[in-house]
Simulated scan of single mutants.
Amino acid sequence: MKPILASEWLKLRSVNSTGYAIGAAGLAVVLGIVWTLYVGSLADQRGSIHAAAPEEGFLPLVQLSLAVLGVLAITSEHAGGLLRTSLAAVPSRGRLLLAKATVVGAVALAVSGAVLLATYAISRVIAGDRSLGFNTGSLADGLLPVLASTLSVTVLALVGLGIGAATRSTTTGIVSVVGLLFILPGIVTYLPAPWSTRVASIMVPNLIPQITGERLSRRLGAGVLQPWVALLVLVGYGAAALLAGYQAMKRRDA
């Protein structure tokens, strides 16, 4: 398995799209600094302000960037014909997909963890003693949401990989991830009660606050799912996408 992992790591870091995706995710740090400076200037004028935490506000950028990385990790190989070569070297589609998932997951975990932690820490340092709404507690108080957010990014990267394996289409994979992150959560709010609340509770953006035990919104109250259930649902997204990708790879040639 080690040679397969080394090969997948070499392929992932040798394509330009990997650097672009990581760079896009890294923009969250820059945007977080700009945002904190902006709301800090408002607080200097008004005395205090209640602003969104930058690591939460720019989380979708990190999620989408690394989900696209997951999609491209396999669709770029298929488009270039490299996937046939990979399958010739590693006939087991399960082992090949597992190796890709391990490499993509590790990269997503490391990059998202570094980006979100940096955004979190730097924004608090810049905020200082000013009351900005997101810096009321100690520096350690917000680490659990950051870790949950990092996990969500990693899962979404695996979702992108699984959808890419199932569809072999970069466009379909990216559109699917966008729909999962932004479109479906908006649509379910129009469902009749109590279905709107129940379905909203399993949408990816709403799982993070439930994992950490925070309030979701006035509509969802304290949350519908227990933290451990929300965690299982989040992990289930990645597992279901990878299973779908594996089944699709088994049924067809590269």
Rank of each mutant, 00 (worst) to 15 (best):
L37K: 07
V39L: 06
V29W: 07
G19P: 09
A24F: 12
L37R: 13
M1W: 06
R46Q: 12
L12C: 07
S17C: 01
G23A: 09
V30Q: 08
V34L: 12
T18C: 01
S48Y: 11
A43S: 15
Q45F: 10
V39K: 01
T36M: 05
Q45L: 08
V29Y: 00
G19H: 06
A21S: 11
E8S: 01
M1Y: 06
A6C: 07
G40K: 01
G32F: 03
R46S: 12
N16W: 06
L5D: 00
L12H: 02
R46L: 08
S7L: 13
I33P: 11
N16L: 09
Y38S: 12
A28E: 01
V29H: 10
P3V: 13
I4S: 12
N16T: 11
A24D: 03
R46F: 08
A28M: 05
G47F: 02
Y38D: 13
W9T: 04
W9V: 03
L31I: 10
T36Q: 03
L42D: 12
Y20W: 14
W35S: 14
S14K: 00
V30C: 08
W35E: 13
L27G: 12
V15N: 05
K11Y: 10
S17N: 04
T36R: 06
L12E: 01
I4P: 07
G40W: 05
A43E: 00
A25Q: 04
A24C: 13
I33N: 14
T18Q: 04
I33E: 13
V34P: 09
A43R: 00
G32A: 02
L42T: 14
L27R: 06
Y38F: 15
I33L: 14
I22T: 01
L5Y: 08
T18W: 02
Q45A: 15
S41C: 12
S48F: 10
R13W: 01
G23M: 07
K2C: 07
A28N: 04
L5C: 06
G23T: 08
Q45W: 02
G32C: 07
M1Q: 12
R46Y: 10
W9A: 10
L31N: 11
G47K: 03
L12W: 01
Y20G: 15
L5E: 03
L37E: 14
V30I: 15
L10D: 05
S41V: 09
V15L: 07
Q45G: 10
S14N: 07
N16A: 13
G40V: 00
K2T: 11
G40P: 02
G19S: 04
A24R: 05
S7D: 11
S41K: 12
L27N: 10
G19M: 04
W9E: 00
V15A: 11
R46C: 03
S48V: 04
A25H: 09
P3W: 10
Y38L: 15
V39R: 01
V39M: 05
L37N: 13
V15W: 02
P3C: 09
S17A: 06
A24T: 06
S48K: 13
T18I: 00
Y38E: 09
W35A: 14
V39D: 02
M1D: 11
V29D: 09
A6F: 05
K2R: 15
S14R: 02
Y20N: 05
S41N: 14
I4F: 15
Y38Q: 13
L42E: 14
S17V: 02
L42Q: 15
S7H: 15
V34F: 06
